[in-house]
């Protein structure tokens, strides 16, 4: 465990010093500030608007952070040949993947929490109530971000960074579709499309901005199940990524 944590720490330092994360975080915060400036039709609707668009901004932020943080880590390690001495001596491939993933996941989580706090500040400044479910909802977005990170790592072991971003974004979009919406993409093979939809992740479970914006109460067990679902899918994607990575030759 110690090598993984040290490598994760190295990854955090590396990402922070490369300033990628700062750029994305600033964009998210600017977007949140912008949302606060939009005039509402009434006090209640403005609060809903801020919450709805704020959480939507965090969802997109999770996707951008995952791509921005992780799509270039492995290709850069290969390009600069940093990976050779790392894998040759102190780390196994599993430790490399887990170290890089943990480091990026830590930054992802902190960025999302900062985003959530930013949204909270906007709500308070505009004199709207902060719903109690805002933090658990952000927690779900953090888990979604981790899942997306695992997807990005998986793609990065067999595609280039320019291809990684659209593939991840495509999966992000497709995995929000309902079964009927997904079957509608290729109606000639409904059985196949239904099966495919079943296998693909259901990321819509992480998006609860609408019920929160409308003040609906969400049971605690929902959060728990959604987190377990997200973490399980994340673990599956990481296992898949490791299986691909283990077979890669470090030419």
């Amino acid at each position: 465990m110690r090598p993984v944590l040290t490598f994760a720490q190295m990854t955090v330092r590396s990402l922070l010093r490369r300033r990628t994360v700062w750029g994305i975080s600033i964009v998210i915060l600017l977007a949140l500030t912008g949302i606060g400036q939009v005039p509402g039709y009434g006090v209640t609707t403005q609060g809903r608007f801020i919450l709805d668009f704020g959480l939507f901004g965090l969802e997109i932020g999770a996707l951008l952070l995952a791509i921005g943080l992780a799509s270039n880590i492995y290709p850069r390690d290969r390009e600069t040949r940093t990976i050779t001495p790392l894998l040759a001596v102190p780390l196994s491939r599993g430790q490399y993947l887990m170290g890089r993933f943990t480091g990026a996941a830590m930054i992802q989580a902190v960025s999302m929490i900062v985003g959530c706090l930013g949204l909270m500040v906007v709500l308070i400044v505009k004199q709207h109530a902060v719903p109690a479910d805002l933090f658990p909802a952000t927690g779900l977005l953090v888990v979604e971000g981790w899942f997306l990170l695992a997807v990005v790592f998986f793609f990065s072991f067999w595609t280039s960074p320019p291809l990684n971003a659209p593939l991840t974004a495509l999966l992000f979009i497709v995995s929000q579709l309902s079964v009927s919406g997904f079957v509608g993409l290729f109606p000639r093979a409904p059985g196949l499309m239904r099966t495919l939809r079943l296998l693909l992740p259901h990321m819509d479970v992480f998006h609860i901005k609408d019920p929160i914006a409308h003040g609906m109460e969400i049971p605690g067990v929902y959060f728990l199940l959604a987190i377990v679902y997200g973490l399980s899918y994340m673990a599956f994607m990481l296992a898949l990524a490791l299986a691909v990575f283990r077979r890669r030759d470090m030419k």
Binding site: M10, R13, S14, R17, R18, T80, R81, T82, T84, P85, A88
Partner: peptide
């Protein structure tokens, strides 16, 4: 390694 290139930010 031949031509070692560690992360240059360290």
């Amino acid at each position: 390694p031949e031509n070692p290139d560690y992360e240059d930010i360290f």
